[in-house]
């Protein structure tokens, strides 16, 4: 049993930090002894959330992205936060294949990937204040 643990990470919204962010979160999650598949789920979801913050939240402007992770028992809660422009219509943004920036050749699958790979995804967003994506992953490998 790992007990409760927490970490906070702040970094610039540069695209080279996408791999940095997902590797850091995966390393933190590793203490729960997840399977390789579960860890890959977490990495992919974090990558989507961070990419959204860079492209949509800050629209390629360089500012700070904050990730907070909390481990409780057999699950990890991951919050990815930006202080960018916010999402106009969250329900629309969550629809598969929808993208607000088709010129960038985005697939519009970001939220679908997050919702498929994580057990819970919640989005809070306010125009010109920012966006918080909260995700929870429960590791089956811990439930013994």
């Amino acid at each position: 049993m790992v007990g409760k643990n927490h970490m906070r990470l702040e970094f610039l919204s540069k695209s080279q930090n996408e791999s940095f962010a997902r590797v850091v979160v995966a390393s933190f999650a590793a203490q729960l002894d997840p399977t390789i598949e579960e860890l890959a789920d977490v990495k992919t979801a974090v990558s989507e959330a961070v990419t959204n913050a860079i492209i949509h939240g800050y629209e390629d402007r360089v500012a700070n992205i904050i990730i907070e992770c909390t481990i409780t028992e057999d699950e990890i809660e991951i919050i990815v936060e930006d202080k960018g422009k916010g999402i106009d219509d969250i329900e629309l943004a969550k629809e598969p294949l929808y993208t607000s920036r088709p010129e960038l050749e985005r697939s519009g699958m970001g939220f679908t990937v997050m919702e498929t790979f994580m057990d819970k995804v919640d989005i809070e967003s306010q125009k010109d204040v920012g966006t918080r994506v909260m995700m929870v992953k429960r590791f089956e490998s811990c439930q013994k």
Binding site: K43, T44, T51, R106, G108, V113
Partner: peptide, 13 residues
Amino acid sequence: HFMDSSGIGVVMG
């Protein structure tokens, strides 16, 4: 060894 939805965009494009 890693691909997210950006990869989907590349293949679709």
